[in-house]
Amino acid sequence: MNPVRKQRLLLVLAVLVGLAIAVGLMFYALRQNINLFYTPQQVASGEAPLNTQMRVGGLVEAGSVVRNEETLDVSFDITDGKGSFTVHYQGILPDLFREGQGIVANGTLISRERFEAEEVLAKHDETYMPPEVQDALEKAGHPGAQKSSE
């Protein structure tokens, strides 16, 4: 390669590698801020701050959803297998909200066991299938049928 081009190529590569490392370090340093939410494990371990506006995310524990008959009050437990706490919310839940579903809640952590949510969002995963396939999987007791979470 002609020396001028070689020099230009090396310069460009050096700039790109330097920039990539800088962005990588920044990404690493701001890791917790880039994460959209705290996991139940982080809440249990005390990593998540109390009484500040923040988001938490996890799976809705089966059988934990309690709805008030007269008002829109609802409470449920969320878990990631390493920690669990109760989320209390007043409002309309998204259509995809169900037991076993991954959710993200925005609000404040009152204590390590209680989270007051102002907004509840449902996550869904990248599994897409027709309802008949889901039924068949469920009937066969396939573990894939339980993967409707996260």
Binding site: R31, I34, N35, L36, F37, T39, G57, V104, L121, K123, H124, D125, E126, T127, Y128, M129, K147
Partner: peptide
């Protein structure tokens, strides 16, 4: 990182769950 957005539907390596 933790996101609201789900993972890639079509994976370059490995089987897709669609």
């Amino acid at each position: 990182v933790q996101t609201l957005h789900q993972g890639s539907t079509l994976k370059l390596f490995g089987e897709s769950t669609i």
